[in-house]
Simulated assay, not measured.
Amino acid sequence: MDFVKKHIVKPGESVNLKSVRTEPDGPFEGKEEAREYVEETIQKLRALQYRLYVEGKQSLLIVLQAPDAAGKDGLIRKTLGRMNPQGVRSYPFKVPTPIEQAHDFLWRVHQCTPAAGQISIFNRSHYEDVLVVRVEDLVPKRVWSKRYEIINQFESLLAERGTRILKFYLHISPKEQLERFKERLDYPEKHWKLNVGDYEARDRWPKYLEAYEDVFKKCSTKDAPWFIIPADKKWYRDAAVASIVHETLQEMDPQLPTVQVDLDEIRRLYERELAEMDND
């Protein structure tokens, strides 16, 4: 399956999330096959990420957005976070601090974008400033409505600098979300995730869908496309995102630097020192 073609939102495309599946429709026969695919893909990701890190010219930004319990943390832990941590950083964007609120809404985000050779993963992102603030009525419409174009300009700036941008929306159903909330209740090690506000936000589910639909239409661009990933099945979510990231790194085609040393001379020195050690 071409996961890119299947899940990408084309620039300017209108999306009705209610009509988009949250369950996969292939290509795997089940979770075991999908998990094998993920393991194989992770090995390929590691090799490409190593080349990206050593090349030191390009970078990759991965943005994750989703309703609560859709699996952003799990996706990072099981898949994206298994690349070499020397070249990958994950940033969870929570409620802005007083210092962050004293700056423009992109201030805290810009300093977390990836340097050349690096990959940054945003667990939530600058899109909270056209989603949460809109639905929860935290700022007036005249403020958040201007931010779509500002975000597009910001992402265009990153792309001009050599950063590829992938934005994933993990699409989960209200029923599956409720099941995962129950799981948090059943397992003490997950109690820390419980939040009354998560249940209250379910009452505003239609408003959040509407806000996301505007984000997709206004901010899915050639340089920074959005992908809507069915997320009711965790194994499909992981496989689809891993595949799209892998294909993107392949397109970026990072190259190892040209060798600048005399390899024959290095071998000669190695063999001489090895022979001296043997004689001792």
Rank of each mutant, 00 (worst) to 15 (best):
P67V: 11
E36K: 15
V143C: 00
Y127I: 04
Y212C: 12
S59Y: 03
I76P: 09
D25V: 08
H246S: 12
L157P: 00
D280T: 10
P254S: 00
P114M: 08
A34I: 06
Y270K: 06
L249A: 09
L106M: 06
R147F: 10
A159E: 08
E183P: 07
E136F: 04
T79I: 03
V135N: 11
E128T: 11
R237N: 04
E189A: 15
K167R: 08
F168G: 10
R35K: 14
R237K: 11
N16L: 08
Y270F: 13
L157D: 11
E210T: 04
N123Y: 01
S59M: 00
N16Y: 02
F93H: 06
R147C: 12
A201N: 14
M1S: 14
H191M: 14
S243D: 15
Y50N: 01
W144N: 05
Q250D: 07
R237C: 05
V38D: 11
M252A: 10
L45R: 11
A69L: 04
I76K: 03
A211G: 04
Y236N: 07
K44V: 10
I42K: 13
K217G: 10
A70R: 04
A34F: 07
E210W: 09
H103E: 10
A201R: 06
E39G: 13
E33I: 05
N152K: 08
L157A: 08
H7V: 11
Y37Q: 12
K222P: 03
A70L: 09
V4T: 13
I228H: 07
R184G: 11
T97H: 05
L185G: 12
K190P: 15
S120I: 01
P92E: 06
L194W: 08
L194A: 13
L269P: 00
P27D: 03
I99C: 02
D25H: 07
D198F: 13
I266W: 04
E29W: 09
G197L: 00
I228W: 08
E23F: 11
Y127C: 14
D238Y: 13
Q177A: 12
Y187H: 15
I121W: 06
A102H: 09
R124F: 00
L64F: 07
A102M: 01
